[in-house]
Write a protein that binds this DNA or RNA. Structure first.
Length: 482
RNA sequence: GGCGCCGUACCCAAGUGGAAAGGGAGAGGUCUGCAAAACCUUUAUGCGACGGUUCGAAUCCGCCCGGCGCCUCCA
């Protein structure tokens, strides 16, 4: 069983073979930190999180780099989006960057995303970026005009190999572009001269200025991962021009292939339309988390394939929530039963075949990280587990542990949707749980004496406090309602 | 206009040549004092439309309809 990955560069699924066996270098385009993350960021980084987790599960040592863009990108009107936001808030741009970076990690942590090994800031790598621009100039791939440096796209004959685009001759000479400093409309900035009033700028051989839109990813990825590395990921919307330009810059400097596998995740839509900051139709993660548990959002994201679009709607999220809670109920019941088996020292019992579930799960993940298919396998395991737990025959401690390990490995360690701890009545012998236990005892007495109104009242009142009671065959359990 | 993607049940969503996964919602049932949970049964002779290739197509080819993305910053 080998892992196959869809490579945007070749437009087909390829067998994954890292450059150095057992070691994987991976770079994913991170956020531009000028406003809170939205569901789209969630989908992107959850998808890549599962990819990293799975590569590690397979035994690879993964070095995962994800940049923080705190220099900003130019808008149509020539204004930097970080500067624009800082003017709105009347604070230094770096304050915005710092605040949003913290907010970003906060959201990602809640989604259960394992942090990247290195989160390099663009502003902290100006020297490396200047160095690259110097080399591009020296090799004749770039030209300087009036304090700015541009990449000469015509000099790089492989330009367009990622996005399948060809340079359009017809665009040349149009009136708008003829006023530009660029020799060719497709040329892009490597270094921009800072106009007066531009707050963020650094000294360079070409005067005060700031790095271009694409150079940071080339400079930082190669700094930490080498001139050729295994995986570069990002949103589909970054395929062109961003990633195309990264290839052009990097390969022009090194003369070597930049990246072996390009992975692009698809976008989130809202009512069928792309969600983006510039559309203003985006739902921030913080907003979503008010209504839905972050892990429900993660579950929802993983219910569709990373290369498919995901349409965000309340109806779909609510469906995901119910499904997710059902899964957690299975885990909760399983762990309750395990604790009981342990206290009974139950060594004998029935069992069923777990290996088939593992095999099918792995097959799904090996086929270009098919998480939704893998989740289907988890649900089938959940059903068989429930059947066994409901059966008259008991399961042994050992087998219950095996099931728990299977869920923890596949659903926990790889997919990140099953937490290690789930609230049960055993979580802490605090005063609260002792009080609830007293209520359960009183209610038990009421039930025995068939004083139904009292039994129902206790259950109803506790429910209102978010404590749900469930009467099982051999007693009452409680847990917090999500 | 150029390049590309998608259209599977009421909703979400796998499946890319050989008996239509999975989740939600709905219906019926088992269990239960009642709930809840769980389990069982059920819900697309059908995969946007029409042609074609094939013993066989959701899956390949053609055409048409509908939706979306990139080409300008974006995950």
């Amino acid at each position: 069983m080998a892992l196959f990955i869809y490579n945007t560069l070749t437009r087909q699924k390829e067998k994954f073979k890292p450059i150095h066996e057992g070691l994987v270098g991976m770079y994913v385009c991170g956020p531009t930190v000028y406003s809170d993350s939205h569901i789209g960021h969630g989908k992107s980084y959850v998808s890549f999180d599962v990819i990293v987790r799975y590569l590690r599960y397979l035994g690879n040592k993964v070095l995962y780099i994800q940049n923080i863009t705190d220099v900003g990108h130019l808008l149509d009107d020539g204004e930097d989006r970080m500067l624009k936001q800082s003017k709105i808030e009347k604070v230094h741009p770096m304050q915005i960057a710092e605040k949003i970076t913290r907010s970003y990690f906060e959201d990602m942590d809640k989604l259960g995303i394992v942090r990247p090994d290195i989160s390099p800031r663009a502003s902290g790598h100006i020297i490396e970026q200047i160095e690259m621009v110097k080399q591009l100039l020296a090799k004749g791939f770039a030209y300087e005009v009036n304090g700015s440096v541009y990449y000469d796209v015509q000099k790089f004959n492989k330009y367009g190999k990622l996005s399948g685009r060809v340079l359009d001759e017809a665009v040349e000479g149009t009136r708008v572009e003829s006023r530009s400093e660029k020799r060719n409309p497709a040329d892009f900035a490597l270094w921009k001269k800072a106009e007066s009033g531009h707050i963020m700028h650094w000294p360079s051989p070409w005067g005060e200025g700031f790095p271009g839109w694409h150079i940071e990813c080339s400079a930082m990825s190669m700094k930490y991962l080498g001139e050729t590395f295994d995986i570069h990921g990002g949103g589909m919307d970054n395929q062109f021009p961003h990633h195309e330009c990264e290839i052009a810059q990097s390969e022009a400097v090194t003369g070597k292939p930049f990246v072996k596998y390009w992975i692009h995740n698809n976008l989130v839509t809202v009512d069928g339309k792309k969600m983006s900051k510039s559309f203003g139709n985006f739902v921030t993660l913080k907003d979503a988390f008010i209504k839905y548990d972050p892990l429900v959002v993660r579950f929802f994201i993983l219910q569709s394939h990373y290369r498919s679009t995901l349409d965000f709607s309340d109806e779909a999220l609510q469906g995901a929530r119910t499904g997710y809670e059902k899964l957690l109920t299975t885990i909760r019941n399983l762990r309750e039963e395990l604790q009981k088996a342990e206290s009974e020292k139950r060594n004998e019992g029935i069992s069923f075949d777990l290996s088939l579930y593992k095999k099918r799960f792995m097959e799904a993940m090996n086929d270009d990280f098919n998480a939704p298919l893998a989740m289907g396998v988890i649900f089938e395991l959940s059903r068989e587990t429930n059947q066994a737990l409901n059966s008259e025959q008991k399961l042994s401690i050992d087998f219950l542990r095996q099931i728990d390990m299977c869920f923890s490995e596949l659903g926990g360690r790889i997919l990140g949707i099953i937490p290690e701890q789930i609230s049960t009545k055993k979580d802490g012998e605090n005063i609260e749980s002792q009080l609830i236990d007293i209520h359960i005892k009183v209610r038990q007495q009421a039930k025995q004496e068939k004083v139904w109104w009292a039994a129902d009242l206790i259950r109803k009142e506790l429910e209102a406090l978010g404590i749900r009671l469930e009467d099982k065959k051999d007693g009452t359990i409680w847990h917090r309602a999500k």
